[in-house]
Design a protein around this nucleic acid. Sequence first.
DNA 1: CGGGACTGTCACACAGCTGTAACACTTAGG
DNA 2: CCTAAGTGTTACAGCTGTGTGACAGTCCCG
Lengths: 230, 230
Amino acid sequence: MSGKTVLIVDDEPAIREMITVALEMADYICIEAADAREAHALIVDRQPDIILLDWMLPGTSGIELARRLKKEETTAEIPIIMLTAKVEEDNKIRGLEVGADDYITKPFSPRELIARLKAVLRRATPPGIDVPIEVDGLTLDPSSHRVTVNDSALNIGPTEYRLLQFFMTHQERVYTRSQLLDQVWGGNVYVEERTVDVHIRRLRKALGERHDYLIQTVRGAGYRFSDRPA
Amino acid sequence: MSGKTVLIVDDEPAIREMITVALEMADYICIEAADAREAHALIVDRQPDIILLDWMLPGTSGIELARRLKKEETTAEIPIIMLTAKVEEDNKIRGLEVGADDYITKPFSPRELIARLKAVLRRATPPGIDVPIEVDGLTLDPSSHRVTVNDSALNIGPTEYRLLQFFMTHQERVYTRSQLLDQVWGGNVYVEERTVDVHIRRLRKALGERHDYLIQTVRGAGYRFSDRPA
DNA sequence: CGGGACTGTCACACAGCTGTAACACTTAGG
DNA sequence: CCTAAGTGTTACAGCTGTGTGACAGTCCCG
């Protein structure tokens, strides 16, 4: 299972739909945007793992959006695959110039798309994703799928693990219950928002009094992971 | 929840009503005006996030109003969607010419209206909405939902947070209690105006003596946020 | 099949936030 | 000065949002 979130940016609904269907079959989570603004809003809100970006867009062009994304610190790391309608060497060059990680010319087969996607994700997946994250004695090691507090392993369920991993890779930022459901549970499930509270609780309990301060409640907003006291 | 305020300008009460019902279901706050004059008054007073403007109006036409709004600095930023009765290419062109952001031809479905509305609002929302704001040592960071004074966190409730955020993104301008209730509390609540005073008080207290000068009382008018002493 | 682990939901407890009223104070204008 | 209107300040009762424990259903593995 991949569970990676893919943002598809194309002004043509039919194309978005086609890609979505293909990718969801391959177990990706898809979100769609029709133009650059919509795309930007979704990027901020959902933080996709990769972006499929059409070359031609109404308003701000795909190229322009790519350039901007690569400039902003919070989005620069997200890999981008450009979609171009024609085989124009120019596009390729300019696309890669502004920071796109790969490009595909339409029409393309789902097979090809997924292959490229995997390749880019593998390549872009920084050596950092497998590196253990450590905060104040709390360590999460993705490669061994293990969580320890001062070297003593702690026993948490899969959901708590994903939740903690998400938090530790997204520190210092508040996430609403809804966003957490999207990011940790995966967009298409329907669960009560209060369920998040329960898993937060379980996680805190597992962390123990010495470390539960790391998961902070922001009343009226959501939760935040930070080693800096509230 | 959106909570955005939509001003509907149309001389036909039935149409206004229809739109209002549709939009309120989608969680927008609606205010209505029958002509240009009424519209202008509401724009100044309520500062809607977007305006639905009928092409044909008694007295000053919709086009004329749009033109004026785009000229005035305080209203130029408010997006406008023109409503036209017939499919006349002319209207489209002239409407966009004077600065409308989109147009819809009647009749239209609520679905379509809301879709356009969202698109325009998203387009109009600057991507920089998440950057921290800093004034004289006071920092508000929307992404972490944190407020600090010289790096020491200060503890304020959700309402004070929204109030402060509104002020910091709208500095140097005086807002009446009524306007603040609209903007910070969200139009449809009914609360005593004096409630604003209390929250202002709480905010000032939290800011401390060193910084409470930032929130200034304008006797007989309302409050203003400014780093320039009164 | 049986048992254990995990999940989502609910009900209840509780802390913190909110709106209001009441009272104290300040300002403007006679 | 004196008055009235406008604003500052405080206390408090009610409410909302969050913490918490229990529980039943589900899935997986032996």
